[in-house]
Simulated scan of single mutants.
Amino acid sequence: MITTEPVRRAILLVEDNPIDLDLTRRAFARSQLINPLEVARDGAEALAWLPRWEAGEPLPLVVLLDLKLPKVDGLEVLRRFREHPLACSVPIVVLTSSIEDCDIATAYRDGANSYIVKPVDFDKFLEVTSQIKLYWCLLNQPPAAHPAPPR
């Protein structure tokens, strides 16, 4: 009997800063994350995933969303994902440098599941990515990768 390993659902990282992108990739590699990391480098690229999911591509396990993005800002991406019948149930973790109370309040009001301020120090960032891996990739029970079409 041939068995195959289950397909690991991707994490969608929405990040425009190449330094933060590299830092995140290195931190996840060091924490031995086995889920693939898909990247959208601006808000428009993030929104371009919606038709792909409509066409049957698996939903991500979790979205890590920066707020300060070119083309379409992160809060608008969050709102559009939450309005979409397929993407509305995907966990979204805001991972940003903003410590503004209004950003935090708006992100939660608009449906963020978590809000994490990016640490500047790599060792602390490594701790954050380890916690993201532990909770969102191992402990959390996500919605189906291919949810039933909306009624």
Rank of each mutant, 00 (worst) to 15 (best):
Ile2Leu: 01
Pro6His: 11
Ala10Thr: 15
Val14Met: 01
Val14Arg: 14
Glu15Arg: 11
Glu15Asn: 06
Asp16Val: 14
Asp16Glu: 14
Ile19Cys: 09
Leu21Asp: 00
Leu21Val: 03
Asp22Glu: 09
Leu23Val: 15
Leu23Trp: 10
Phe28Tyr: 05
Gln32Leu: 14
Leu33Thr: 08
Leu33Val: 03
Pro36Arg: 12
Pro36Phe: 14
Leu37His: 10
Val39Ala: 01
Ala40Tyr: 08
Asp42Tyr: 09
Trp49Tyr: 12
Trp49Ser: 06
Pro51Leu: 13
Arg52His: 11
Trp53Leu: 11
Glu57Lys: 05
Pro58Val: 06
Leu59Thr: 02
Leu61Asp: 03
Leu61Ser: 09
Val63Leu: 12
Leu64Gly: 08
Leu75Phe: 14
Leu75Met: 09
Glu76Ala: 15
Arg80Gly: 15
Phe81His: 15
Arg82Gln: 10
Glu83Gly: 15
Glu83Asn: 14
Pro85Thr: 15
Pro85Leu: 03
Ala87Met: 14
Ala87Gln: 12
Cys88Glu: 07
Ser89Met: 13
Pro91Cys: 08
Leu95Gly: 05
Thr96Trp: 10
Thr96His: 12
Ser97Asp: 05
Asp101His: 09
Asp101Met: 07
Ile104Ala: 06
Thr106Trp: 10
Thr106Pro: 06
Ala107His: 05
Tyr108Asn: 01
Arg109Gln: 06
Lys118Thr: 03
Pro119Glu: 01
Asp121Tyr: 01
Phe122Gln: 04
Phe122Pro: 02
Phe125Pro: 02
Glu127Cys: 02
Glu127Tyr: 04
Val128Arg: 00
Ser130Val: 00
Gln131Met: 00
Lys133Tyr: 04
Leu134Trp: 04
Leu139Gly: 00
Asn140Met: 09
Pro143Ile: 10
His146Trp: 03
Pro149Met: 01
Pro149Glu: 07
Pro149Gln: 02
Arg151Val: 15
